[in-house]
Computed example of a mutant assay.
Amino acid sequence: MAGAARWRSASLFLAVVLTEAAWTSESAADEEAEPIRLEYTADAACPSRDEMVDRIASYTTRWTLASENWRRKFVVRVDRRGAVFSGRLEITSSRHASVRRTIEGDSCSDVATGLAIAVALAIDPYASPVAHEEPPAGEPSESADAPTPAPPQTAVAPPASPPEAPKTAQEVPPRTESRPRASPPVPLRPPALSVAFGARGGANGAVSGVLADVGVFVELAWTPPFEHIHWLSPSIRLGGKHSFTRTAEVGPSDVLINWKAGFVEACPGHVALGPRLRVSTCLAAHAGILSAHVRDAPGVEATRRSWFDYGAVAHARWLAHPRFFVEVVGGAVIPLVRDRIRVEPDELASVAPPVGWSLGVGGGWRL
């Protein structure tokens, strides 16, 4: 039994040494005993205060109990948590911050022994790993064939890794020249399509004199596909126009001139001049019919000619509402077909200029 007790004490001593190695004893350099204050609280199944004092004294005698003028205070507490006993040691000093340690075990006697060793090591770093005397007689004996309880488990700090040895010239990897990294591709945004319907009224000076016209259109617009190129927001408009009849005096007769055409406008993007004002430049084209006939001339058929032109137009759009917009449109028009329209008796009724113009005002609603 004495051998088993000494084995448990030695095991507890080794376990506590690993956790107490960093503690610095304030009386290690003094030959005289250190005056300490001991406060001990434990479960009823644990050793008494006197037994705890005897266990500490069995490992070192370089201390003495003092109710006042003590150098350090040792607070020892053991609590039962189900089948496990948890012991806590707190050391308070007037010159250093408090130090706390915790030990757990299945036996309160083993936990108390571990705490006694911890107190002894804090007082005397050279305390004996084996008790100088047997445990107190009041402690219950154990049979020789009884299983030896496991020593209390304590947190063991991992050893510090040794410093890395300097590498020799052969071990140092060769330096490689850094190459400039290629610029990452510009991220693409998923194209979001919006649809708008609108109407426009204006004047055209590229067909036959000056023709007033009205038209309707549908617009398809995409949000900017590139995150860093905000102005790139393509749109396309498809629509139709019909002019008001213009009356031209040709000799003694009045000639009625009409024009109707479909149009397309393709815009690569827009520039925002404010939170609600946008300006865009587009390519435009018209394809239609130009007709003329003499008023009050029974039996005289109307003269018709195909019409094609292209040009550039600019849009200034004001967003009166997140969905409603008002715009002004103006541009230059180049006729592709400049047929002259003549009426009986071979009088010139209409001729297109080499370059014309167009103006318009309209609005629309975005779905």
Rank of each mutant, 00 (worst) to 15 (best):
92 T>L: 13
138 G>A: 15
346 D>G: 09
31 E>W: 04
247 T>M: 01
260 K>Y: 15
250 V>G: 03
356 G>C: 07
33 A>K: 12
180 P>F: 14
109 S>F: 13
108 C>A: 12
288 G>K: 07
259 W>C: 07
147 P>C: 02
265 E>Q: 14
54 D>G: 07
242 H>L: 07
113 T>D: 15
23 W>Q: 06
220 L>K: 06
141 S>G: 12
11 S>D: 11
81 R>K: 07
81 R>F: 13
307 W>T: 12
296 D>A: 14
256 L>K: 08
157 A>V: 13
176 T>P: 00
228 H>A: 11
132 H>L: 05
307 W>P: 05
152 P>R: 04
295 R>C: 04
164 E>W: 05
42 A>Y: 01
178 S>D: 13
265 E>D: 13
304 R>V: 07
225 P>C: 08
259 W>K: 09
139 E>V: 09
361 V>F: 10
183 S>Q: 14
132 H>T: 15
88 R>N: 14
92 T>D: 08
234 P>G: 09
56 I>R: 01
251 G>Q: 09
170 Q>P: 04
48 S>D: 12
300 V>N: 06
305 R>W: 09
57 A>R: 07
72 R>C: 06
52 M>P: 05
333 V>N: 03
262 G>F: 12
286 H>T: 05
209 G>W: 08
109 S>M: 07
267 C>K: 03
244 F>P: 04
297 A>I: 00
192 A>W: 01
225 P>G: 11
98 S>G: 11
77 R>I: 03
329 V>D: 05
43 D>G: 15
197 F>K: 00
333 V>I: 05
1 M>C: 14
46 C>F: 08
116 A>Y: 04
105 G>Y: 00
188 L>F: 14
320 A>W: 10
63 W>A: 01
349 A>H: 04
228 H>D: 14
316 A>F: 03
176 T>K: 11
258 N>F: 00
116 A>P: 04
18 L>A: 12
208 S>G: 08
171 E>A: 13
361 V>T: 06
71 R>H: 14
277 L>T: 13
206 A>R: 01
258 N>W: 02
156 V>L: 12
17 V>D: 02
256 L>Q: 04
19 T>V: 12
309 D>Q: 14
177 E>Q: 13
185 P>I: 09
261 A>E: 15
273 L>I: 03
184 P>G: 09
159 P>G: 09
146 A>R: 14
21 A>R: 11
216 V>W: 02
87 G>H: 08
73 K>W: 06
72 R>F: 00
28 A>W: 05
233 S>C: 09
159 P>R: 06
144 A>V: 12
53 V>T: 09
271 V>W: 15
334 I>N: 00
161 S>H: 11
158 P>M: 08
52 M>C: 02
156 V>C: 05
342 R>H: 13
235 S>Y: 00
88 R>C: 05
32 E>N: 08
48 S>F: 09
290 L>Q: 11
326 V>F: 02
128 S>R: 11
33 A>H: 10
80 R>C: 03
143 S>H: 07
76 V>R: 06
74 F>H: 08
36 I>V: 15
112 A>K: 02
184 P>L: 06
